[in-house]
Computed example of a mutant assay.
Amino acid sequence: MFLLRVVLPDRPGSLGALATALGKADADIVGVDVVEQRGDGRAVDDILVQLPPGKMADALVTACNSVEGAQVEFVRFYPSRGGLQRDLQAVEAMTADPTHAEAVLVQLSPNVFRADWAILLEARDEGDSRPRLLDRSPAAPEEIDDVSTPWLPLTRPIRLPDPAEWAPSLAQSTTAAVMTSGDRVLILGRRGGPEFLDSELARLGHLVALARAIGAGAA
Rank of each mutant, 00 (worst) to 15 (best):
F2Y: 12
L3V: 08
V7I: 05
V7E: 06
P9H: 01
R11F: 01
P12W: 03
L15P: 04
L15W: 05
A21N: 11
A21S: 14
G23S: 13
A27Y: 09
A27Q: 11
I29K: 03
I29C: 10
V30P: 06
V30W: 07
D33A: 14
D33G: 12
V34D: 01
Q37L: 13
G41L: 09
R42M: 02
A43H: 00
I47L: 10
L48R: 14
P52H: 12
A57S: 06
A57R: 10
A59H: 00
A59K: 06
V61M: 00
A70G: 00
V72K: 04
E73Y: 02
F77T: 07
F77N: 04
F77E: 08
Y78S: 10
P79R: 05
R86Y: 13
R86S: 15
L88E: 13
L88S: 13
Q89H: 14
V91F: 03
V91P: 06
M94A: 07
A101G: 08
A101W: 03
L105G: 06
Q107S: 15
S109N: 09
S109Y: 08
N111E: 14
V112M: 02
V112Y: 08
R114S: 10
I119H: 09
A123G: 01
D125W: 02
E126H: 10
G127K: 01
S129R: 14
R130C: 00
R130S: 04
L133I: 10
E142C: 09
E143C: 11
D145M: 01
D146P: 00
S148Y: 06
P153T: 03
L154R: 09
L160M: 08
P161N: 05
P161G: 02
D162Y: 11
A164Q: 10
E165Y: 00
S169H: 05
T175G: 12
S181I: 04
S181Q: 11
R184Y: 04
R184L: 02
V185R: 06
V185N: 09
G189C: 11
R190H: 07
E200D: 12
E200K: 13
E200Q: 15
L201I: 13
A202F: 11
A209E: 15
A211Y: 04
G217H: 11
A218Q: 06
